[in-house]
Structure formats: C-alpha cells, structure tokens
C-alpha cells in the first residue's frame, strides 16, 4: 500500500484504513454492481436491445426522465428563490424553515409517497380543490411530477446556499457605486457566480429523481404505458422472474446514473478550475 503514497507518511494507519475501506467498498458495492453488468452480458445484443426498447420500456423512460427533468427544473427555479431568501433575508421562523428543507432527504420515501397521495387524491386537502377544476394529480403523470419535485427540493437549495453565503458583498457594492441598478448587478455580478452551483443542484436533483421509487409508486397510477416509471417496471419484471429483462433495464438506469454523476463532477471541476488564481 505504501507504493500508492506520494511520499512515505509518518502518520500511522494508512495501509490499514485504506485497505479496509477498499475491501469493504468492493465487497458491498463494486462487486455486486459489476454482477449486474456481467449478468447482462449473458444476453445477446439483440435480446438486450429488444428488451430495453420495447414499447412499455420506452413509455417508462419518457415518464421517468421527463418528469425528473421537469421536476429538477421546477426545483431549479423555486429552489433558487428559497436559497436566496434563506441566505439574504431575516424573517421569523427562518431557522426552522432552513432546517426543514432537508426533510425530503431524511424522510423515508414510502412515507412521502402515502402523504402526497393522501393530499392530492380526490378528497385530499388539495386534491379536492383541483379535481373540480379538471386537474387530476393523484394516479396520473402529474402526480409523479409532484412526488419528484418533493424529492429533489433539497438539492438545489443546499447546493446554492454555501455559494450565496460566500458571495463577496463588496463586489455588489462596487457595482452599485459604478452606477449599476440592482437588477443589473444581480444579472452581471451575482448570477455568473451561481450558474455552476445551480447546474450542479439541478443535475443532482435530476439524478436522484430518475431512480426514485418509494415516493412515486403510491401517487402514480402505475398503469403500463401510461403512468409506469422505469424502476417499477424493473420491479415487475423481477416479480415475474424475468431476471434478464430486469437486469437489462437496470443497466440502462445505471449507465444514466453514472453519466449524471460524471457530469456533476465535471461541472464542479470546471467551475473550480475557472476560479483558480493563476
């Protein structure tokens, strides 16, 4: 292990801790994940392609990725407002609200699922007003959107908050002394600083929503080809012992997840490279 060190270290425990961490992580995460890819390789390319492009699967992608993207964008907008308000303004109850932003992160997804369904069903607190207006949320794709917006809420807010906090107030004052209006200052000085964090937050919300299961299956209609999300489709195939089909779809989801993680890392690397003083 000492060969991996850039230079020999005097603090003890390197070999032990890194060795254990790598061993544990490989055992619990890496090996099982690679099992998925290996199992899929037992399919021929035609079988794989056929499974991942059948109409039911395609419909599920449309719903899953579409609703996730939409939810992430909604969170992108409102999340920015929330982050701005929490960092810049003082109002009663601010700290409680700030703490609660993490609720979707800490709350079990099943609980979120049944709570949202209860609210938006026809006799729910909100559903009872929306339905007469023709807006049916529960058991429709719209319900999926609502659930995924809930799930992604903390990501944009929590990614933007530290950036907003670190903004140099003096730069805004300088712009002001040079004659810029408040809106001009926000557009030209503040927003460029926020774009990378915003992109990261939206990407993370998107990645999280794509794989979401528990909070969605209660409020979605789960009708194949109409309101069925991809994770549910995988689950259904499993229950029918169609392991090959389940793993094929699993690989698709996993590849998307890895690409998104890579994208998030690239955004962060790019933005920190931009800010490095040369």
């Amino acid at each position: 292990m000492h060969l991996a060190l850039k230079q020999p270290s005097v603090l003890p425990g390197f070999g032990l801790t890194l060795g254990f961490a790598l061993f544990y992580f490989s055992l619990i995460v890496l090996i099982p994940l690679s099992g998925l890819f290996i199992k899929t390789s037992s399919l021929t390319w035609e079988q794989f392609w056929h499974t991942v492009t059948e109409p039911r699967a395609l419909a599920s992608y449309q719903l899953t990725f579409g609703a996730s993207l939409l939810g992430a964008l909604v969170n992108g907008f409102f999340g920015s407002v929330v982050a701005w308000v929490l960092v810049r303004y003082r109002f009663p109850g601010r700290s409680i609200v700030d703490a609660l932003v993490d609720l979707p992160f800490a709350l079990p997804t099943a609980v979120a699922g049944i709570a949202l369904t209860a609210i938006y069903s026809s006799n729910g607190w909100i559903g009872r007003y929306l339905e007469p207006m023709g807006l049916k949320v529960a058991f429709t794709p719209l319900g999926v959107l609502v659930a995924l917006t809930f799930i992604g809420l903390p990501f944009v807010v929590r990614t933007l908050q530290p950036v907003l906090q670190d903004l140099d107030r003096e730069v805004e004052e300088a712009a002001s002394t040079l004659g810029a209006s408040r809106w001009q200052t926000i557009r030209a000085v503040i927003m460029p600083e926020l774009w990378p964090a915003l992109l990261t937050g939206v990407a993370m919300a998107f990645a999280r929503s794509v794989g979401e299961y528990g909070s969605v299956i209660f409020i979605a209609g789960n009708m194949p080809l109409k309101s069925e999300i991809t994770p549910l489709l995988i689950m259904t195939k499993l229950e029918q012992y169609d392991y090959a089909g389940a793993t094929a779809l699993g690989v698709v989801m996993l590849v998307v997840a890895f690409l998104l993680t890579l994208m998030v890392n690239l955004i962060q690397w790019w933005s920190s490279a931009r800010h490095t003083v040369r």
Partner: peptide, 29 residues
C-alpha cells in the same frame, strides 16, 4: 491525512450508492 494516487477517484466513487436507484440496489443482491 494522506496523499495518494487515486484519492479523488475514491472520493467520487464513494458517492455511487447515492446515484443508484434503490430498486437496482436490491436487484444486484
């Protein structure tokens, strides 16, 4: 506490379970 080759990669892959759909997390087992 240490500098080693591949440190950034390790930090990144530790986040993998967060990106994987829960259904897949069960499926692999």
């Amino acid at each position: 506490k240490f500098e080693f080759v591949g440190k950034q990669i390790l930090i990144t892959i530790i986040d993998i379970p967060l990106a994987v759909s829960p259904v897949i997390s069960g499926l692999i087992y």
